[in-house]
Write a protein that binds this DNA or RNA. Structure first.
Length: 486
RNA sequence: GGCGGCGUAGCCAAGUGGUAAGGCCGGAGUCUGCAAAACUCCUAUGCGUCGGUUCAAUUCCGACCGCCGCCUCCA
């Protein structure tokens, strides 16, 4: 089964073949650290994370680089407002980025380069562009000469005249061409600066990604991902800078994530209609937020609203209930023989095979996470049905298939990050909690035996208030902690 | 003006030239002391509108309507 990726460059679904067999070089545009990031930003970061995980699932060795833009106008303005250093402000939000993204289950990239730590590389790259006549200096500012690059516009599919016709930018009269953009910005008073051949200044926005991608991944990378808003001008400019400097293809597959909307409009910082991940994570379980963010294919807009989030919470709970119910079978030895002497078990294993096939074929189709969820939940229904029918009476074969089901579901959900295994705060506390719960449930069981329903229900209700849910069954009472409340 | 996206059941959302995955919500049951969880059944002759191609279109083509985005910092 071949993975296909929609390449913004060609506007087509293309079979994915990495530059080096078995390895994937991937670059994802990260945050500008002047504030917390919102759920819209999270969608892109999450998709990068899932693309990476799925490629690993398929056996590729993936190197993921995600930049942190830690110097730019917004950072300078925000730092000035707060009367602190730009570096201090940036560090605060770098820390916040890692905290919030890890709470969302987004794994850190292999490298998180920062613009301010790559000034030398940036300067060298600009110098190369000047040497090649692709850039020019005017009074301490350096601009990229767009006319030098005949293919300018190939990513955004724009013609030069279109770019000028729609230009709403204030045109700097000193530039040779209105489309030329900053590579190096001369510092104004009170602004942070670095020394360069053109005087004190700081890098323009686009150049850092070219310099850092090349430094950490090489001159040609496989996948370059980012939000759809970066397609133009950011990514277009990255191509222009990089390809003129090296004479090589910069990125082979360009992947752009559609916007998250809210009330039918784009969620954006400048729209001030955003919801910080920082806050969302207080209200909803990370798995629920992830489920929501991947409930539509990444190239389709998705609308944020509380209803969708609570739908995702319910869906994720259903999934979690199922996998937890399979937990007891996780260590049963798997019987992988082709012939199963138990018809129900055989049918469940067919369902499992189908689930895996559909998961892969749908993910191979440009990371169609919505379709993948469909495959997973269909199988969840089959597992529940099997468990309801056989329960503890399962045959050895049945138990073996349940074990396979558990491991497959955990693996597949791991790619999407929609199931979290129970993890206690610490072993010590987990053991204590376990012991206390056993005690409480014994007391309640005694009450139930006396038909003292008032006491039994009081215990259940009070535990429920603590997000501990009890479930009585013929074989006893089980409990679980409801993550993220309800 | 240029370029692009979206419009599928009450809500979210896959999908296919041959007759609509999955989730949520709702209703009726089973189980249970009551719940919860789970299971069973029910919930789109229909996929924005109008035409066209075809034996057959939601799926292809054309026109139109509505909503959104990029073209400026923004994931």
């Amino acid at each position: 089964m071949a993975l296909k990726i929609y390449n913004s460059l060609t506007r087509q679904l293309e079979e994915f073949v990495p530059l080096h067999e078995g390895e994937v070089l991937m670059y994802s545009c990260g945050p500008t650290v002047y504030d917390y990031f919102h759920i819209g930003n999270a969608r892109t970061f999450l998709i990068s994370d899932i693309v990476r995980r799925y490629l690993e699932y398929k056996g590729y060795a993936v190197t993921l680089v995600q930049n942190l833009t830690d110097i730019d106008d917004k950072i300078i303005n925000r730092a000035n407002e707060q009367g602190i250093d730009t570096s201090r402000l940036a560090q605060k939000y770098v820390d916040a980025y890692f905290e919030d993204s890890s709470r969302l289950g987004i794994r850190a990239a292999d490298v998180h380069p920062r613009a301010t730590e790559h000034i030398a590389e940036i300067i060298a790259l600009i110098q190369t562009l000047i040497d090649k006549q692709a850039a020019y200096e005017i009074d301490g500012d350096v601009y990229y000469r767009v006319n030098h690059f005949a293919e300018y516009g190939k990513l955004s599919h724009r013609k030069p005249e279109d770019l000028l016709a729609g230009a709403r930018v204030e045109i700097d009269e000193r530039k040779e061409d209105a489309r030329d953009f900053d590579l190096w910005k001369k510092s104004k008073a009170e602004e942070p600066w670095w020394d360069s051949p053109w005087g004190k200044g700081r890098p323009g926005w686009h150049i850092e990604c070219s310099a850092m991608a090349m430094k950490h991944l090489g001159e040609t990378i496989d996948i370059h991902a980012g939000g759809h808003d970066l397609l133009f001008p950011h990514h277009e400019n990255e191509i222009a800078q990089s390809e003129v400097a090296t004479g090589k293809t910069f990125a082979r597959y360009w992947l752009h994530v559609a916007f998250l909307q809210i009330d039918g409009r784009r969620m954006g910082k400048s729209e001030s209609n955003f919801i910080f991940v920082h806050d969302a994570v207080e209200q909803y379980a990370p798995e629920a937020i992830r489920h929501f963010l991947i409930s539509a294919q990444y190239r389709h807009p998705l609308d944020y609203n509380p209803t969708s989030l609570s739908e995702s919470s319910s869906a994720v709970r259903r999934l979690s209930n199922c996998i937890d119910a399979l937990g007891p079978y996780r260590d049963v030895e798997e019987d992988t023989s082709a012939e199963l002497n138990d018809a129900d078990a055989a049918s469940l294993r067919d369902g499992l095979d189908t689930m895996r096939q559909n998961f892969e074929s749908t993910m191979d189709d440009d990371f169609n996470t919505a379709g993948a969820l469909g495959a997973i939940f269909k199988f969840v229904g089959e597992v529940n049905q099997f468990l309801a029918a056989t329960g503890d009476q399962s045959s050895d074969v049945g138990r073996s298939v349940l074990s396979q089901a558990y491991n497959s579901l955990v693996e597949v959900c791991g790619v999407l990050g929609i199931y979290a295994e129970e993890e206690g705060a610490s072993d010590e506390h987990a053991a204590l909690t376990e012991a206390l719960m056993t005690l409480i449930l014994e007391v309640r069981q005694d009450a139930r035996q006396r038909k003292d329903w008032a006491t039994a229900d009081k215990i259940r209700d009070q535990l429920d208030a603590l997000n501990v849910e009890l479930q009585d069954s013929r074989t006893g009472t089980t409990w679980r902690i409801i993550k993220g409340g309800r």
